[in-house]
Design a binder for these strands. Structure first.
Length: 201
DNA sequence: CAGACGATTGCCT
DNA sequence: GGCAATCGTCTGT
């Protein structure tokens, strides 16, 4: 299996978000491998148009802040942030440097290191290990220490691997949990998933 | 420096 | 379906 290269990420977020479906998210943890197949993503921001749901557009008048700085940086790095006082979210920076583009990984299908996922998810049922953005972060032991991690680095502890295109159909719909975000961004269909997959959130 | 709120989850009715 | 948990980040005073 081949690690996804920088060029894969250095494209518009919506394109990367769809192409990530079926790829593998891998994590080296406790000397072992945890790996899952990506089945749900969301795109935030695009080069051409504003996205008021995106942290990079919403805060500080569209300028970087300490939290969002990574989002404005090079593609192929991890943007990990803390929310609701208890949850970590794992995103992948996409697009061009200077633009706030990222893809949120929302759900995985467990493949490797299932005992570690069960342990990290406190013994919950298999279906609840990775069917949500904060759940998969916990299952893969993703936290602040991985913010800014280089996903293309050969000896990194978190990366993505190429995989054949998915056989499932790709579905699209509005993004989840946008709260007070105004239209049209509240309803714009930038969430993508593999139709029928049981691990979609 | 105080106040509002969040790219969610899990428990309760 | 409703709602509390829990704290970092951002904003306005």
């Amino acid at each position: 299996m081949k690690r996804l290269p920088y060029a894969f990420y250095a494209r518009p977020a919506r394109q990367v978000a769809q192409d990530l479906l079926g790829k593998l998210l891998a994590r080296r943890f406790d000397g072992r491998l945890i790996c899952g197949r990506i089945v749900e993503t969301e795109a935030y921001c695009d080069a051409d148009e504003p996205d008021l749901a995106c942290h990079g557009d919403r805060a500080n008048d569209g300028r970087p802040t300490p939290r969002t700085a990574v989002m404005f940086g090079s593609a192929g790095f991890a943007y990990v942030y803390f929310t609701y006082g208890m949850h970590w979210m794992f995103n992948i920076v996409t697009g061009q440097e200077g633009q706030a583009n990222a893809v949120l990984i929302r759900a995985l299908e467990p493949l490797t290191g299932v005992d570690l996922m069960a342990q990290n998810r406190n013994g919950r049922s298999r279906r609840e290990w990775t069917n949500g953005p904060a759940k998969l972060a916990q299952a893969l032991a993703i936290d602040k220490s991985l913010n800014g991690a280089n996903l293309c680095q050969p000896d990194g502890v978190i990366w993505l691997e190429d995989a054949p295109p998915p056989s499932e159909q790709i579905a699209a719909g509005p993004r989840i949990g946008l709260g007070q975000t105004p239209e049209p961004w509240y309803s714009i269909p930038w969430r993508y998933w593999l139709r029928g997959n049981p691990y979609v959130s």
